[in-house]
Design a protein around this nucleic acid. Sequence first.
DNA 1: CGGCTGACTCTGG
DNA 2: TCCAGAGCCAGCC
Length: 106
Amino acid sequence: MVKKNSETQYEKIYHIVRGIPRGRVMTYGEVARRAGNCTARMVGYAMAGLRPGNDVPWHRVINAKGEISDRASGDGALIQRKMLESEGIIFDTRGKLDLLRYLYRY
DNA sequence: CGGCTGACTCTGG
DNA sequence: TCCAGAGCCAGCC
């Protein structure tokens, strides 16, 4: 399979997010680092640019604090938390999850 | 082509 | 422990 470098970093980011197994999460920074020359902001922006119909488990991407980032769109954060809980991830009373336990690393 | 924006992260006080 | 500022780069008008 030939890979085109013409692909945007977004595609790379999506691919990585798709590689996150169920019950695990990944931080923006980790995804960015694995994607290559990319920054956490790019990942965040890539997630923001997601469209319905994609098979990207965006809810498995969280910030470095182990928290769900507040986004511009309404209650997305609440949905994300529910999705993660649905996968067996337990949230702390402060709304945080244990990164040492759920963080997916290669 | 230039400037603004953003689901982040890090460091210092 | 919490708050604020700076850095970062691709996409869009």
